[in-house]
Design a protein around this nucleic acid. Structure first.
Lengths: 153, 153
DNA sequence: ATTATATAATAGTCAGGGATAGTCAAATTA
DNA sequence: TAATTTGACTATCCCTGACTATTATATAAT
């Protein structure tokens, strides 16, 4: 029998397609539909709907709580960004990062203010407290997540 | 089920916009309009119209009592930003950080894309590799530097 | 008239219950 | 061995209602 997680993943992706890129679910309801414990939904989301794979997830607890999953845009800028994101490795230097960001401005992917923000967040100044051997890794993560966020809106 | 608190929040914010920054309501009347207990109005106000979020609330009991909500007048965006920057300590949680960022959107200091960028750069997801005891420090630094960059352009 | 007191009309506080979602590690399965 | 499944425990958010606090107004006492 196929793994339940795969089935839930497929179900959600179908839903996302039908809803044109975004769904909002209730964790318990979905768990109930598939006769599993609620935390399995978290498992599916954390293993299959990651930022790396092009999804943006938000949630809220309490009465009327929800989990929303958005697929990033796949057209034009979005596609280009996704390409860049996957091309960025686990580490990136400040200099390389700045080159990327400047390119985005040239390509009209981001504007000057957004570039300033991104440079600020990925500068060595900001990451000064992080051990040198970790710094380029954190920078890569920050940069990739910022780019990912741009593909959503 | 939709959250009543969100509906009331939206109602009040619309009212505040229409009235150019200030409203005066009667607690019981509003509770009646939304079929809830009066104390829910207090809940909405205390969770959504806090000083942190840029609102100033006054009230008076007894006959002819009222609750007034005013949106704080922000002189210039730059001044406001500088004020926020200096008010941020050495550490900040993800939640608090998001509250600030949402606030900037409300004040038209940044737009939705910029907010996404900032949230991405200050999220726990991004800082996951930083030891917990350091995480809020790094977040504060990142946030402050990004805000700084906005005061320039 | 003036002052004191009672009553009515507000708003505030707080703790509890219910409804969600998140985390983590143990157990299971492929 | 790695991925999946499970469930106990935790965290967060919302809504309610009983009880309290404050203010204005009407009434009574002087």
């Amino acid at each position: 029998m196929a793994r339940l997680s795969d089935i839930i993943e497929a179900f959600l992706k179908t839903l996302i397609n039908e809803e044109e890129g975004a769904v909002e679910i209730q964790r318990n309801e979905l768990a109930n539909k598939f006769n599993c414990v609620p935390s399995q939904i978290n498992y599916v989301i954390s293993t299959r709907f990651t930022a790396d794979k092009g999804y943006y997830v938000e949630s809220r607890r309490g009465g009327g709580g929800y989990i929303s999953i958005k697929r990033v845009n796949t057209e034009s800028a979005g596609e280009y960004l996704m390409h860049i994101i996957t091309s960025i490795g686990n580490k990136i230097s400040q200099l390389t990062s700045e080159v990327f960001i400047n390119n985005f401005v040239d390509y009209n992917i981001i504007d000057d203010r957004e570039a300033m923000l991104m440079k600020a967040a990925t500068s060595d100044k900001v990451l000064i407290d992080i051990p040198v051997e970790k710094r380029d890794e954190v920078r890569a993560t920050v940069l990739k997540h910022m780019l990912m966020s741009l593909t959503v809106l």
